[in-house]
Simulated assay, not measured.
Amino acid sequence: MRTTMDRIAPIFLFLLLIIDTSTAIDTINTTQSIRDGDTILSANGAYELGFFSPGNSANRYLGVWYAKISVMTVVWVANRETPLNDSSGVLRLTNQGILVLSNRNGSIVWSSDSSRPATNPAAQLLDSGNLVVKEEGDDNLESSLWQSFEHPADTLLPEMKLGRNRITGMDSYITSWKSPDDPSRGNVSVILVPYGYPEIIVVENSIVKHRSGPWNGLRFSGMPQSKPNPKSQILN
């Protein structure tokens, strides 16, 4: 005869499995990896990180896309200039806090960098769609080791910054895909000019096609119909 413990043990085990698989699905550490076919999901379920092939291309890329939109809409690509030609790609996080994407031969296809040495790094896909490398348990974005929002692709997301970081000297701007099948840098860029009164310009084939007008503290003066967005930021 089965005891009460015999009956509840499978249920208890099932609950443990649910708890285990529902935590840390947005994060990897140095002992974990993401292989082609694996994904991680932001805690709010809005964004997903994994491997994909754009359009009719057979090449594989590591990227972030909207998880709740039926038609895949990619918002960030890691290796946009260095595609994988098969499904052997693996993303790992090193003990130094650097994301490394390698192919079947172990050759590095793409890697992030780090602002300082890491102690106990983790990589997390935030609810904003930002892929962040940080010290595990440290949720202060300003102290992160690296973040994808500082390396935009062709999409400007809320909380993403455009402009020049005056500390690092790095410029952040968005650039179109070359084609629907090729996410490498195309010929159209949206750039925030940081000199004097900042303004946004749209450049196509090195020719300025549009200017937003200077920033007046609330909006760009050449776009009077626009409304202030509290989540939009300009680097100072």
Rank of each mutant, 00 (worst) to 15 (best):
G63D: 06
S53Y: 14
D113P: 03
F52E: 11
G163F: 12
M5F: 12
T73P: 04
I25N: 11
T155I: 09
T73V: 04
N79L: 07
I200D: 01
N236K: 11
P228H: 12
V100L: 06
N120S: 12
L156N: 01
G63F: 06
G97L: 01
V203R: 05
R116V: 00
A153R: 01
P224V: 05
S144Q: 12
D181R: 05
A43C: 03
M170E: 14
R211Y: 14
I108N: 09
P152W: 04
D127A: 12
L91I: 03
G63K: 00
G37Q: 11
K134E: 07
V109P: 05
T155Q: 04
M1V: 14
P158I: 05
I19P: 01
I174D: 12
Y173W: 06
D154R: 08
I69L: 15
N59A: 07
S115P: 02
G169I: 04
P230C: 06
I19E: 07
T175W: 01
R80I: 07
F52C: 11
D139S: 14
S176I: 08
G217E: 06
F12M: 07
R185F: 01
G217R: 08
R164W: 01
V208C: 13
N59Y: 07
S226H: 11
W110R: 02
S57Y: 01
E204T: 08
G63C: 05
W215E: 08
G163S: 09
A123T: 11
K134V: 00
S88C: 02
L15H: 02
T21Q: 13
P54R: 03
R7I: 05
L91C: 04
S184L: 05
T73R: 12
Q32M: 08
V133M: 00
A78L: 10
S42W: 15
G63N: 04
I34G: 02
A123W: 07
S88T: 12
F14H: 11
T168Q: 10
L62E: 05
F51L: 11
G196M: 00
Y173F: 15
V64D: 08
N236W: 10
H210P: 00
V71M: 10
I108S: 13
T175P: 06
T82N: 13
S226A: 15
R2H: 15
D26W: 10
L157C: 13
S189R: 03
S111F: 02
N44F: 10
L41Y: 02
M223K: 05
A153M: 03
T119A: 06
G37E: 08
L84K: 04
L126S: 12
L16A: 06
Q124Y: 03
R104G: 15
D38V: 05
L218M: 14
G129N: 05
I11G: 03
T39D: 08
S184V: 04
N29A: 03
F12T: 15
Y197M: 10
S179N: 08
N205W: 01
L15C: 15
L126I: 00
L156T: 00
I108H: 00
